Simulated assay, not measured.
Amino acid sequence: MSRGIEQRRAVRRVTLNSAQRAHWPARVQAKYEDTHARDKSLYLSWLADSYLTAGEVEQSAKATSRALDLSAGVASVRPRQRLAPVLRCLSDHRALSEVADVLEKARG
């Protein structure tokens, strides 16, 4: 499946009504234990990107923060590479405290 199709599907999910949107990522993440940190952090990087596309900057920052936490303990560089463009886009919103926090975490 191409990345464009994946992202469009994720954007559709992200733009669900408010109640569903608030609980959907947590339900999906709960299915995967942190022992699958690489895969989970990659999933969260796509989710963060989709949140940005949908204009949900704070949610993007939360997903990015969790992805950073998970990717810190894996040998693969792919999750961190996937987060780089998300972090660049988030930097345009550094005035938001959630974004400032995740940018600081990424630098640390």
Rank of each mutant, 00 (worst) to 15 (best):
S2C: 02
Q7R: 15
R8M: 09
R9K: 13
V11P: 08
V11L: 14
V11S: 09
R12Y: 05
R12E: 12
R12Q: 13
R13I: 06
V14E: 11
T15G: 09
T15C: 14
L16S: 15
N17V: 04
S18W: 02
S18M: 04
Q20T: 10
R21T: 02
H23F: 10
H23R: 14
W24E: 13
P25W: 02
R27V: 07
R27W: 06
R27H: 10
V28L: 13
Q29D: 11
K31P: 00
K31Y: 09
Y32W: 13
E33H: 11
E33W: 03
D34K: 00
T35W: 02
T35K: 12
H36Y: 08
R38V: 07
D39G: 15
D39M: 03
S41H: 01
S41I: 01
L42F: 02
Y43R: 13
S45H: 08
W46C: 11
L47Y: 07
L47D: 04
L47V: 12
L47N: 03
A48S: 10
D49F: 07
S50E: 11
L52Q: 09
A54E: 08
E56S: 10
E56K: 13
V57M: 08
V57Q: 07
E58I: 10
E58K: 09
E58G: 09
Q59R: 13
Q59H: 12
K62L: 11
A63V: 02
S65Y: 02
R66V: 05
A67R: 04
A67N: 06
A67D: 05
L68I: 06
D69G: 00
L70N: 04
G73N: 04
G73K: 00
V74P: 03
V74M: 03
A75G: 11
S76G: 05
V77L: 10
V77F: 05
R78A: 12
P79C: 07
P79Q: 07
Q81T: 11
A84V: 08
V86I: 12
R88V: 14
R88I: 10
R94Q: 14
R94H: 14
R94F: 03
A95P: 01
A95T: 14
A95Q: 15
A95Y: 06
L96T: 08
S97R: 15
S97M: 10
V99I: 09
V99D: 11
A100M: 02
A100Y: 03
V102E: 04
V102N: 02
L103M: 08
K105F: 04
A106P: 01
